[in-house]
Design a protein around this nucleic acid. Structure first.
Lengths: 192, 192
DNA sequence: ATAATAAATAGACTGTAGTCTAGTAATTAA
DNA sequence: TTAATTACTAGACTACAGTCTATTTATTAT
């Protein structure tokens, strides 16, 4: 049931996408987003520059996909583990996010910057990066509220904005994203 | 006491800076940061392109200065007016910031993006934009805490990060910055 | 076989930020 | 008056993102 009718013309090179994404990841980690040109990626992947543009609209789209193919492998520890309190789960979650950003934070910053200059990419980025994380935290905070760890009067959606906002604010202003920050954010959200 | 010894060579054209900044503001508001080239600004100001680079390092530096020369005129309503509660003052302050961003928000977004791609500019932007606002809000929240409007246990620095973070997060994700947001942020910060 | 289709390639092209240089103009110091 | 100094101008130059086009190549449909 997988060999549906193949489409008409010449098929896409099956290996190209993987080679391109691998080259992208390697070069971006090595030199930083800014210092990697599309031409360099194409060359490293042994592919014509236009082939990249056949498959991705912009450099940002390509890097986002390459980065997320890798990142999605990191199965975050479950946020609904009932054997832990929600405060613990949030702090652990933030700690994991920050640990990952220690490696890829510069790239994420570049992608956020790219999103400010390109509406289409902003939508893609929001869909793939922003929304999922926001939903995870909001759901966790709702559970916390249902369990009485957060007062019923609190505005959970706004608290979720506080959490992500504090994280973006630190990231974009070049402040360290470490365990201290994860603890301070979490503690303040759960403070009576 | 103002006519100190003039420096050695040919003096800078006294009118050029004003003409350049005026052209910058007008073009950026008209077409958006992205769609204004340095060449277009130089041409509109009747000045050689290199003259811009004699005075500013990058497009972002120029736009920041042009924008702030205008913005600094907006004397924000005082944040330490003792005849109002701190909650009221914070909401009014955020309302003013958001109202101004309704006009210049796209430019500010572009500047934040530029700061992600240029360390030197990030430092300048932090100094001129980020720090002053952060200090105003932190001072206000400290006063609120001293007056008992905020519980002594709260971490005021983190609350300030929450406020700015929520605002950046909304701005950079294309969500509306309006009176509702100002009210929701403020209410949640002051919630018991 | 042949036609139709779509991907890949090479390379020209546009627009922009930022750098560099050579020449000219305005000013101070001697 | 002349030398030194600095700003301004014009324009060449580099590097890059993204677009476009002509050509070749791999595939399906007839």
């Amino acid at each position: 049931m997988n060999d549906d009718k193949r489409p008409r013309g010449r098929p896409q090179d099956a290996d190209a996408a993987a080679a391109i994404k691998a080259a992208t990841l390697q070069l971006v980690k090595e030199r930083g987003y800014r210092n990697v040109s599309i031409a360099a990626i194409a060359s490293a992947a042994n592919v014509a520059r236009q082939t990249l543009y056949n498959r991705w609209n912009t450099k940002a789209d390509l890097v986002l996909e390459a980065l997320f193919e890798e990142t999605d492998l990191y199965a975050a520890a479950p946020l609904n583990d009932p054997s832990h309190g929600c405060q613990f789960l949030l702090e652990r979650f933030l700690g994991q996010v920050f640990a990952h950003l220690a490696e890829s934070g510069d790239t994420v910053r570049a992608l956020i910057a790219a999103a400010q200059e390109d509406r289409a990419f902003q939508a893609v980025f929001k869909q793939r990066f922003v929304k999922p994380r926001e939903e995870m935290v909001t759901a966790l905070l709702q559970r916390a509220q249902a369990r009485g760890e957060i007062a019923p009067s609190r505005d959970v959606a706004m608290l979720s904005s506080f959490v992500h906002g504090a994280f973006w604010y630190a990231l974009l202003n070049g402040e360290p994203l470490d365990a201290n920050l994860a603890r301070a954010i979490t503690a303040e959200v759960f403070r009576a």
